[in-house]
């Protein structure tokens, strides 16, 4: 273990807000509030048990409605969160049931469809993927490899699958990457962007076969947090 108290201009400590606003500039006018999405959904169906069917719960319009209920309560906010959150109530009835793959490996940032997503870092577009799966798929997905090797790779998911930068292109902070997608082409989920960090070692371990990359993991797997550190714990630049 190495301790590194060294600092340089590129590696300033940043706030969550600064990073998320760099990524989605449209958020700059909002306050950011961290929310446990699974608890939100679980509490909704506790109050409305008659509506708790798989079809209803997995309907992205219903998920969106449950999230949107927060906005009149929390004035002028944008909701985000979810790293290592166990979402067994949110995704009950999906492919995740098979091996209890409910642990969310990134963070979700709620934003309206069509909002522009920009690069928070200087790096290379390592992978582009259009996932047509509508059972909690990725939709449009980009993987960025930062030039700074002290940063892991960054995955951006649930984008509009038509607009993308070119594979292998260099990007710098602020460069336009794409737009927030909407269901069903965003993987058939509520409108948001999924941000997931993946360690460079893990990328090598899966032999850069990003097709097998999942946004969810099996609870109790010690490697989950190591392979997918909290994207909010880095100074992306």
């Amino acid at each position: 273990m190495i301790y590194n108290p060294e600092f340089d201009d590129k590696n300033d400590i940043f706030s969550t807000r600064e990073f998320l606003c760099k990524l989605l500039p449209s958020l700059s006018k909002f306050e950011l509030v961290s929310v446990n999405l699974n608890d939100l959904v679980r509490d909704y169906f506790k109050i409305h048990p008659e509506k708790d069917t798989v079809e209803y719960r997995l309907d992205p319009r219903i998920q969106q409605m449950i999230i949107d209920k927060l906005y009149p309560v929390l004035d002028n906010v944008c909701v985000y969160g979810g790293w290592m959150e166990n979402r067994k109530d949110l995704w009950k009835g999906t492919y995740m049931d098979k091996d209890s793959r409910y642990v969310h490996l990134g963070i979700d940032l709620m934003a309206d469809a069509e909002s522009s997503a920009h690069s928070p870092l200087s790096g290379i577009v390592e992978d582009i993927f259009i996932d047509k799966d509508v059972d909690v798929g990725w939709g449009g997905r980009i993987i960025l490899r930062p030039f700074d090797d002290k940063l892991p790779l960054l995955v951006l998911g649930h984008l509009e699958p038509k607009i993308f930068p070119f594979l292998g292109n260099t990007v710098k902070p602020g460069d336009f990457l794409g737009k927030i997608g909407k269901p069903p082409t965003n993987g058939n989920v509520f409108e948001h962007i999924h941000l997931q960090a993946i360690s460079r070692e893990f990328a090598e371990e899966i032999d850069f076969n990003y097709g097998m990359l999942d946004g969810y993991g099996v609870a109790g797997d010690i490697k989950l947090a190591r392979n997918n550190p909290d994207p909010l714990s880095f100074s992306w630049h």
Binding site: M1, I2, Y3, N4, P5, F7, N11, I13, F14, S15, R17, D149, K150, L151, P152, S199, R200, P229, L232, S233, F234, S235
Partner: peptide
Amino acid sequence: YNGFHFEKVGALWYTQWQNGPYVYNV
């Protein structure tokens, strides 16, 4: 403190700490 730099952002104090190849904001 002890060679580490701390900055207050909102309600929290952040410092940077390296484990393996990555520098984390703590």
